[in-house]
Write a protein that binds this DNA or RNA. Sequence first.
DNA 1: CAAGAAATCGGACTATAGTCCGGTTGTGCC
DNA 2: GGCACAACCGGACTATAGTCCGATTTCTTG
Lengths: 193, 193
Amino acid sequence: MLRTSPPTERADAARNRAVVLDAAAALFRQHGVDAVSMDAIAAAAGVGKGTLFRRFGDKAGLAVALLDEQERTLQESILFGSAPLGPGKPDDDPTPRERLRAFVAAYLDYLLAHLPLVRMSETASPGARYRIGAYRFWHRHVSLLLSGRADPQADAHTLLAALAAEHVHAVAAELGHTRVRRAILDLVDALTA
Amino acid sequence: MLRTSPPTERADAARNRAVVLDAAAALFRQHGVDAVSMDAIAAAAGVGKGTLFRRFGDKAGLAVALLDEQERTLQESILFGSAPLGPGKPDDDPTPRERLRAFVAAYLDYLLAHLPLVRMSETASPGARYRIGAYRFWHRHVSLLLSGRADPQADAHTLLAALAAEHVHAVAAELGHTRVRRAILDLVDALTA
DNA sequence: CAAGAAATCGGACTATAGTCCGGTTGTGCC
DNA sequence: GGCACAACCGGACTATAGTCCGATTTCTTG
């Protein structure tokens, strides 16, 4: 029988991952995400470039790793939390529209709180956004809540387009957070009419 | 009085621009947009790298220059063409919804016909899409047609998010052109309800 | 048509992403 | 404890984007 890869991470690998993530977080805070090179992160962490790229793939992978915890928190609130973001108790389950509005609001909070990092994770390489697991999660969630429409999957993609970090970044810079948020909530209303 | 830059392009500059655009178009056709480096374009055109970057800024600028003619054609059809894409005659002007649907259909035709180039022009550097002049044109046009809504400018950005090359590329690969097209046209209907 | 000013040219140069592989370190098994 | 093997480490290496400035070409004016 083939031996699958061991589930436990080697001690040196675990240590290095923690050191790298700490160093990256510190450098990003200090100089901004865009101004920090992978060389600089490797040097600050005291590891070689090879280690950095083997473990995280590229700068986007590093960003994903840094966001991982917060992302999970949001995902768990959606799956198991209380209404309207979560499914609610059997006797007071929220309407799809309420849950969608709550999702958009919560996702925008998350996005705006970590905009440079999310933007990096989505734009480092073309198509990155649609490949990472998180996007599939959001898409599935939104699809289910749009089940009343003719093509929930396609409509879910359309709604998520308005939540792309690149888009929110550019439009918020022009019109401000408030108008972006209201426009996307209006879109939810239009799609759940 | 300050002397503004001369309106005429120097002969050598014009010659080089044509040579570079031809060489780039040929290489893109042959190897695909992503597989062609700027070095290769410069070499094929018989021109130095400096010339390439000074005139076009980066690969995105080169893509914009190659798309320029087709883009202008579409823009003129919108401004001066016949209904429903254009404004129409005084006695049979189309409704905003009709014009928006025609715009989305025409823009998707244009986008899908030149997807790799447009994608390059929008994603080469972060934020590129929102800086190029064409985006401002589409945004103004859509804003005017959404004047019935509470915040036409914000809503126009939202609709245009669904027309981003990156988004259309990823979703069309998963669901096919037809469903993407129908979903965005449905969005138009929802926004002009 | 000559000469000077200004724009342009082009290749050497820097910076950064990402790859590769010989050497090292940790892990499981006796 | 010691051994064999897998996994990991790290820095040298390649490829590409983008910059810079001395040399060259073009345009203008008398």
